[in-house]
Design a binder for these strands. Structure first.
Lengths: 193, 193
DNA sequence: ATCTTATTGAAATGATCGTTTCAAAATTAA
DNA sequence: TTAATTTTGAAACGATCATTTCAATAAGAT
């Protein structure tokens, strides 16, 4: 059997995620990745195949990390209303704590590459479906609990919330006022009650 | 007196806008610009200074073209409710008619560069202020007409609408269903009534 | 201990990046 | 028609791009 990978894959993906998030896909060079990961060029190619290859793994890493962290917040809630609140609260916190105001890696990537790169497009379609399915589930529960209205179907509200989240992430790039953002969220959620 | 510019500046900016819109700032090369504008490399530098220079002019061109076209729709309306409807209808149409699903050049640029390039950041701040001022004015009128509620101030609703528009533009990149988008808009506007 | 196989390190690949150079061409005021 | 001035065209700039090459290194299996 051969020599085995010596580097910490999680750590490398973490560093790669940071630089891609900060500079975007086209703005990040292979040299940037070599610098921040402290991996050799050939090790990156050997382990990830290509720049697009490592970026796809970065996207999944970012998505999974977000899901996991948001999930731990969600499980603390006990009704649909609180769940939705905590989802938006998580996004708000993610915006506030990022002093670089980079926005969401996935939203940024969608606008940069979705219309150009089939692999990215597929990822984005899957991401949207997953997000909307989650939101639809929450809304549906809230409607069963009679705390959300039924003027629109859960699916329709899910698309509205998904779109609102993307808007929130874009707005958070320039607007740093926590109170304004919190009020924005409140306004968004008003529709459901 | 010297020789004067021979090329059509509007036409050049139009072509440059198309390629920047399709490929993004970092994805567009000077060679791309030479190819699509049919201008010589040195003519571009002589007239626009740099890649960032021509891009800044492209951003303004895109912004002005949008304002103008949306303006002609707005003047046809006679109350705040119709005005807001026609604004969103304009964005919907802009999404539907773009078979490349590129999204909004300004939103895309904001996510790609706002955190990296001061000139871009300034443009985006100005763009946001302009957009919000316009929306605030419309909402304020609607509130005076008693057709919009006053649960939130016009300024608060303006930020909500601005955020919703960005969300709509991001959603429109992947979602091509006109009915779903129209329903999304309807849901967004529900808040005001 | 040796064989096998994969990961490394360092250098080099050709292509493309944004920008500059400079002489030739072109235009208008005098 | 000439002088003044700027735009053009074509080539070249050094730097950087993503990717490849290949010998040296390292480690589990026999």
């Amino acid at each position: 059997m051969p020599k085995v990978e010596t580097f910490d894959r999680i750590d490398v993906l973490q560093k790669a995620t940071e630089i891609f998030h900060k500079k975007g896909y086209n703005g990040t060079s292979m040299q940037d990745l070599v610098d921040v990961t402290h991996l050799n060029r050939s090790s990156i190619y050997n382990s990830f195949g290509s720049k697009l290859g490592i970026f796809m793994q970065v996207l999944s890493f970012y998505q999974n990390a977000g899901n996991k962290k948001m999930g731990t917040e969600i499980v603390k809630t006990h009704n649909a209303s609180d769940t939705l609140q905590s989802i938006f609260e998580w996004y708000l916190n993610d915006i506030i704590k990022d002093e670089d105001r980079k926005g969401c890696l996935i939203v940024n990537c969608k606008s940069e590459m979705s219309n150009q790169e089939p692999l990215i497009n597929s990822f984005m379609v899957q991401n949207q479906e997953q997000m909307i399915a989650l939101l639809e589930d929450v809304v549906h529960n809230g409607q069963m609990e009679k705390v959300f209205n039924e003027k629109q179907t859960a699916g329709q509200y899910a698309l509205y919330l998904y779109s609102s989240i993307q808007g929130l992430r874009m707005t958070g790039i320039l607007n740093t006022n926590e109170n304004e953002l919190r009020n924005l969220i409140k306004t968004v959620l008003t529709v459901l009650y």
